[in-house]
Design a protein around this nucleic acid. Structure first.
Lengths: 345, 345
DNA sequence: GTGAAAGCGCTAACAC
DNA sequence: GTGTTAGCGCTTTCAC
């Protein structure tokens, strides 16, 4: 069955292809009568427009590229889901690109996406290397950054207030009486990590608790890394009574590290995570965490991009959403229970 | 900066566009000398071919569509990750489509993908409604099914031996001495669920343990559903001593249902999951499960599709991979410990 | 080895 | 309101 074109429809309807094109794109002046007749004919024939051809002349592909480190990470999976939902509502398809935070994969994908003429790009990779970004900006490809970095460059972005998140986590622990609070950050390369750390320090200051660098550890995104880094923290002679992990995976790793050392959570160690992925309710004890409004993050980012695509000449903007503390079972007042098998000094 | 075309390159190189096209696609006869010179010039100019135009004439977009129920489900996220990895290696981008198992969303996406002329489609949705499939097959759009259904239709597919998976899970529990084994299936619509149930029955037979329908419950994919359904099972006067849940999420839900009733796992209840997602190592107790070779599933599916795209006229095939039991901490011999707070008859 | 030219299927002026 | 036509940027015969 040969695939049909707009010519076939035009012929069958006894009109020109321009007319058909106009009813497809519902623009131009068309009498209601011929409009309906043509719609009817298209339906009968089972005609579907070829969007590649359409894209070539109209310069719009209705596709957006989504760059993220790894979609198998629950945080990014949830983000991707919400992004795809919103994009689909607006008539766009999304192409996923796993960069593993590698700069060469990142620019590789960027080149591909550019060649394929995606209408816009959403970056949730956090790193956003200047050279990659430069490439895009130069080509005037609409872009929006999500959830992480908001570098010096003038690009649209949507993210949570990481400083506040760090502050919320630390002050929660401090107000529970904790004073030796370990913090595990994802990477010092990330602006988000730096901000969360600053928030943590700010809370410390407010509680007149001295900042001590020995309590800050750098990790990466993975759970195994969380186990390892938290393990090192817990093997100290003087060990922390609480850990603030900069993502839920690291927090879960911390719980596991504690458990394998016979330290129970929250009795022997309080743990706070970040992101509020669905994992929090899944582990035991359920994880207290700093919640990111993932859905809103996603929606706002897509909408921001969409407005650019519509050609609305709006000023570049940064949308900052506020995180909130989600209390569950992994934190408790320091010293409120007799700790068993616990050698805290 | 106006975007360049093949004409600009041809002009600068003093050759025709046909020649340039040939060096880009490394086909046709081109002298090594001019080839290099043109490559050089393209690099200097920063020229990148427009793949939309290329697609319009060559009929190949180097994009494949991936339909799945929900990418925020860890199983599908891992699958998607591996699919994207392999596709990327082969030079393809992947467009994700979340169907939520709704037939209208499914056919909606299918229409879109067809209009965008993706080179092929990967379906991991399990349902694969005949009408949707018919649409694709009719258009001769290459397709491969993953991980779930393998209906009557002649389509390529890759999946695990679900019967064997069910058998493995049940016989593990039976050999531990369990006789009242609840099974929670995702949906009776799914061939995979039916097969797993058959495997379960087969193991029962082998152990001369009578099959009793009261032990089989139907659920959906979610953890909340797992909690609910497992809860009903556990609230029976005579309750099961083990539960075989047809995915890890349901298994985790079962553990939570048990915990909230004061039943500990594995002492008061053994639980086996299915899929072997990374969640298994994350919960307490770590989950014994039937492992799917997700990576191989993904690779094989992409390769199968790829071979079709290359036009290799191969017979349709079904690749069946074998699952394996992954032992962790959520199962134990029935009766080997005094059960506490347990009213088993 | 290289080039001319006819599409691929559609959009968007512009003319009528 | 509807039709004509010139592209969009590339691939691909088929001459030379």
């Amino acid at each position: 069955m040969k695939t049909m074109t707009i010519y076939d429809v035009a012929q069958k309807a006894g009109v020109s292809i321009a007319t058909v094109s106009k009813v497809i794109n519902r623009n131009g002046r068309i009498s209601e009568k011929t409009r309906e007749r043509i719609m009817q004919i298209m339906a009968e024939m089972g005609y579907v427009p070829n969007l590649v051809a359409s894209a070539l002349s109209s310069k719009r592909t209705y596709m957006i590229g989504l760059l993220l480190p790894d979609i198998s990470n629950p945080y990014f999976a949830e983000l991707a889901r919400n992004i795809e939902d919103r994009a689909h509502e607006l008539g766009y398809n999304v192409v996923i690109c796993n960069t593993d935070n590698q700069i060469d994969k990142e620019s590789d994908y960027l080149t591909f996406l550019q060649q394929k003429s995606v209408d816009g790009i959403l970056m949730a990779t956090g790193l956003a290397h200047p050279q990659s970004l430069g490439l895009i900006l130069e080509k005037k490809l609409p872009i929006a950054l999500i959830a992480r970095d908001a570098p010096q460059l003038a690009v649209n972005s949507v993210y949570v207030d990481d400083f506040m998140g760090g502050y919320l986590a630390a002050s929660h622990l401090l107000s529970l009486g904790h004073r030796r609070i370990g913090i595990i950050v994802e990477s010092m390369e990330l602006e988000s990590s730096r901000q969360r750390l600053k928030g943590y320090r700010s809370a410390l200051d407010e509680f007149h608790c001295p900042y001590d660098e020995q309590w800050v550890s750098v990790s990466d995104f993975s759970i195994v890394s969380g186990i390892e880094v938290a393990g090192r923290l817990l093997d100290r002679k003087i060990r922390p009574t609480a850990i603030f992990a900069c993502n839920d995976l690291l927090a879960i790793g911390s719980i596991q590290a504690a458990r394998s050392r016979g330290i129970s959570v929250p009795e022997g160690l309080s743990v706070v995570g970040f992101d509020n992925t669905f994992l929090c309710g899944m582990v035991d004890p359920a994880l207290t965490t700093v919640g990111q409004p993932i859905r809103e993050l996603a929606r706002n980012a897509v909408d921001l991009l969409h407005r650019q695509l519509l050609g609305e000449e709006q000023p570049k903007q940064r949308i900052v959403l506020l995180p909130e503390l989600v209390l569950r079972k992994s934190t408790q007042r320091y010293g409120s229970f007799e700790t068993v098998g616990d050698i805290n000094l």
